[in-house]
Amino acid sequence: MSVTTDAGARPSERPAQGAAKPPLLSVNNIEVVYNDVILVLRGLSLQVPEGEIVALLGANGAGKSTTLKAISGLLKTEDGEVTRGEVVFAGERIDGTDPDRIVRKGIFQVMEGRRIIADMTCLENLRLGAFTRRDAGVKQDIEMVYEYFPRLKERTGLAGYLSGGEQQMLAIGRALMARPRLILMDEPSMGLSPLLVKEVFGIIRQINRDLGVTILLVEQNARMALQAASYGYIMESGKVVLDGTASELEGNEDVKEFYLGGGDERRSFRNLKSFKRRKRWL
């Protein structure tokens, strides 16, 4: 695997809001309700500028995956609904659109837990990634994916028998096959060994740099995510509570405390709790 992980690979850091041209994706004050009663997102806003990697961080249940599904439209398949606010992609409102239409507009979600099709081969999974395309470049792109992930070429059996890391690579490869402008990636590090996490993140950065694909990354592994991203948002109970450039966030004491682990000194659990109660980001 020839993945460069040097610091120079980091995309240019600049605040998203300061950009002159409008962002590729902008989520404006959305509210999401599941089953007509459960309010999950309450007024969430974020911007993703074209060509950047943006990280969306937060604890379990903060609403990160829901945010991605609200963008990709997959919310509809889970009986969820955007009840307020708007999602604008490339100057066009897309909230309320069917998920298959949104894929055609250029947004592809790599769902949590890979979700590759277990009873198909790698090649069939890749070809399905290109389902929305009709051009002749599909074959060429399969070769391109194999260049990023040479292991996948050797695997001729069913995708269900691949290892977790290989499944993640297949899921990313499948996303590339759709030639999207924006990839929504939900916890690519889930269930992978630290070494594999590093490899996967290396590839995410490489894809972003080589192909110019914009990436919105949801992660538990905040350290890895902030290293790859140029800008980050931190969510708590359905809202963005903090945002800033990746290096600002990495330097922020509270972020260190809650998400990166460590801090200046180790605190006992009880102290941590009281600290949390005092300071709720708000």
Partner: peptide, 16 residues
């Protein structure tokens, strides 16, 4: 076949 496997996955691939 993708739809038979999982409808949500199929939709995430752009299949109606």
């Amino acid at each position: 076949r993708a739809t038979a496997f999982n409808q949500q996955v199929a939709q995430s691939l752009g299949i109606s």
